[in-house]
Structures are given as structure tokens and as C-alpha cells.
Design a protein around this nucleic acid. Sequence first.
DNA 1: CGTACTTTTGAATCGCATCAAATCTGGTGG
DNA 2: CCACCAGATTTGATGCGATTCAAAAGTACG
Lengths: 210, 210
Amino acid sequence: MKDNLVSRPDWKALAAKHPELLLLLPQAAGVAKFKKLSQGGLLFQQGEQPRDIYYLLAGDIQIVRHASNGEIVVVHRVHGGFFAEASLEFPRYHSDAFAFTDCVVLAIPLSVYGDALDNNAAFRRAHFVAQAREIRKLRSRIERLALPTARARLVHYIVTEGVDGSVELDQPLKALAGELNLSHEALYRTLSGMAKGGVIERRGNVLRLR
Amino acid sequence: MKDNLVSRPDWKALAAKHPELLLLLPQAAGVAKFKKLSQGGLLFQQGEQPRDIYYLLAGDIQIVRHASNGEIVVVHRVHGGFFAEASLEFPRYHSDAFAFTDCVVLAIPLSVYGDALDNNAAFRRAHFVAQAREIRKLRSRIERLALPTARARLVHYIVTEGVDGSVELDQPLKALAGELNLSHEALYRTLSGMAKGGVIERRGNVLRLR
DNA sequence: CGTACTTTTGAATCGCATCAAATCTGGTGG
DNA sequence: CCACCAGATTTGATGCGATTCAAAAGTACG
């Protein structure tokens, strides 16, 4: 049915690259499983009963929901980390999850995850902090997207994501444009406009407000 | 300094209206305090050391950050519930929080809050679930804001916030416009356009896709 | 019955998306 | 080392959709 190739994770190698997983080791080693999805593959489907919590190791997953009128709505695009944590709360999935690109997913049984949350204080705290951080990030992003102009969004980005009015970009400007929900052309124009006006300074991949 | 009027909460009345607080009762009763802020009052400031976690009971708080070039950036607008949870993670505030309207805030000492998370399993779970739900909501909202047209945002809203292609609005359309990050005029026009086209049906404060 | 707020429609304007095309860049293989 | 290619960057022209300003009609509530 699903195009999964199930295998055992090499837990040590994994935890080295994803430290948040390290804390799960005591509980999850031996029971967590890899799932590999090729592009378009379905991970779970609306109505199914959740059995696992997922941690996305590679690729992009899309969470979509089907409207009654046939329209398909993208609820979320996952790039990495835990997802489908709603499983803890609901007995059925409310959306479909499919692989937008080839993916590698770690599947951790719900019981193991819940147990770790209850009894593994270190994991719990790390997880809690990660969640709180995620919430802050998302809120900040929403605030940013609500800004009407490209310029305001860019300033907001530099102030909130950077340090002391200065960000180092670890991605091409094109990707930043996506993050700001702008066409890359609009971002380029805004940047050069602000640079000309002396509001911003560009040195390589560093942006600085002045 | 700050225009707080500190007093003891009537915990029972509070917990009735804010069930998530109920679970904190064993730990927090007797140590949590009210702070009343009048409009413009400062709750905390960048650089200060956090002592409490806050729960907003009434009013709006704005979290702002000052850019090096003097610009002020709104990081987040709080309408209710726990906030400033970053306190658990950082020894200093990274932003200012001030009352956008008159506010009532419950201040719970950090130690009490952290202790409850560690030792009060029911509170912890409720809090965890609330966080997870918040994250889902925020992500969905971001996805929505990223949509280019008023129409697409509206459809997304109905599908994700409603049930079976139908939402009942508990707020005036003007407020919905804000949530969708549209001017209310744009929303009105979009609605009537879709209604005329038979894509949407309006009955009182219920919107239905067809 | 008046006041405040929401809902509605109109007209002008602005900013961004889109389509197009040129240049630049880093990395590849011959 | 150079030719070449894919992707990133940049600039230009056009059009659309949303914002803004304005004004009127509807609605709730004391």
C-alpha cells in the first residue's frame, strides 16, 4: 500500500545530527522505525487511527485537507522535526500527509512517545522548550506576514531573526523571498532600493540596518 | 515605577473561566498575583530578568522589539493565555511588553510554574496539548496568510477552522478580515463576489462552501 | 431616538505578481 | 584551463488585486 521501506534506525548516528532525539534514546531505541517515502507517497490519511509520532529526517512532507467542494488546501508544509503531534490529542487524523519530495521519516510509537513525555524529565523539558521556541517563531512570522509592504517585512525579519540589526543569510535571497512571502523580484528591488537609500547595508550575505 | 495594582486572585472564580489554570491551583494558589496595567503601562522590558510567567486575563499586550536604527517592531500581540514563556529559556527578556489596552495579568513565579511542569502531571499534559494545538493553529494561519488572494484565504479559513466546509462566525466580519489580514472592504467584496458566483452561501453568521 | 459600530459600495491609487530577458555565479566535465 | 550549464541575481514593462479614502445604509443597544 504505502511505499515504505521499513528498517531499523542507526540510532547513534541519528542522535548526533538531531540532538533532540538523543534524549529519547532510552525509550525509543529498538522500537522506532524508518519509513522511506518516495515523492507523492502517502504517510497517513484522514480518518486513519494514529499509531506513531513522526520525526522528519529528510525531505518535505505536506499536510493537506480536502474541502467539501473538492478543493485541496495545504495546511502545512513540514521541513523537519516532529510532526503530527495532534495524534496525542485525537483518535483520528484530520488531514492527509504525503511526501512532497522523497522523504525519510522516523516513526515512534505513540505509547513510547507519551511515556517518554511522562517519565523522561530531560526529554520532556527539551521538548517543551522546543515547542515554546517554535511558538515564538511562528508568532513572529505571522506578525511579519501581516505587514503590508516588502520593506516592512524585510526590516522585521532582520530585527527578529538577526542580532543587533544584522543577519547573516544561510540561504539564497530567493529562499528568503519565499520566507517573506514575496516574489524574488520584489525582494531584489526592495533590497536595492533600501541600499540606495542607505537604510540597509549589504556585505556578501550579511544584511545590516543603519 | 510600573502602574501595577497588585492583589490576590480569587482563584476559584478564575479557574472557572480559565480551566487551564485550574490544574495549577495546588501550586499557585497563594503565590500568584494580579497585575493591573493601564493602557501604555510597561509589564517588562528588554534586559530585565524574568521572575514570573504571565497569564493574560483581559486586554491586549504588545510585545515589541527596538531595532538598532530606532524602528520599533511588533513581535507579537497577545490577546489572552500564557505568554512570555521564553522566560524559562533565557535569563533576560529580549523584548518589551506593554499594555496596548487596559490589562489584567496573572503573574506566576517562574519557580512555581517550572515546578508544576515537572511534578504536576495533569497540568503538564494539559499544557503540552495546549502548546501543540497552538502550534497547529499558528502553522495553519501562516499557510493561510501566504495565500495570494482574498478568496483563497477565505476558503482556507472555512476549510481549516470550520467543520465540513462550514463555519459559524463568533465575531463580526470586520474582525475576520483582520484575522485574514485583509481590509474589511476587501473581505466584503470577496464575500459578495463568491456569493454571487454560488461558491459560498451566507446564512446569518454561517458561511458554507458549495 | 440617538449614538456607535458594522456592513456595503464606489473610485482612485499603489505595491506586488507576473512575464520577459539579460547578466552573473558556482560548479561540471572535457 | 576553459566551455558550458543550472541556478541565482538583476532590471524592465504590464496588469491585477488589495489598500485607501469616502460616503451611505444597516443594526444593536442604552
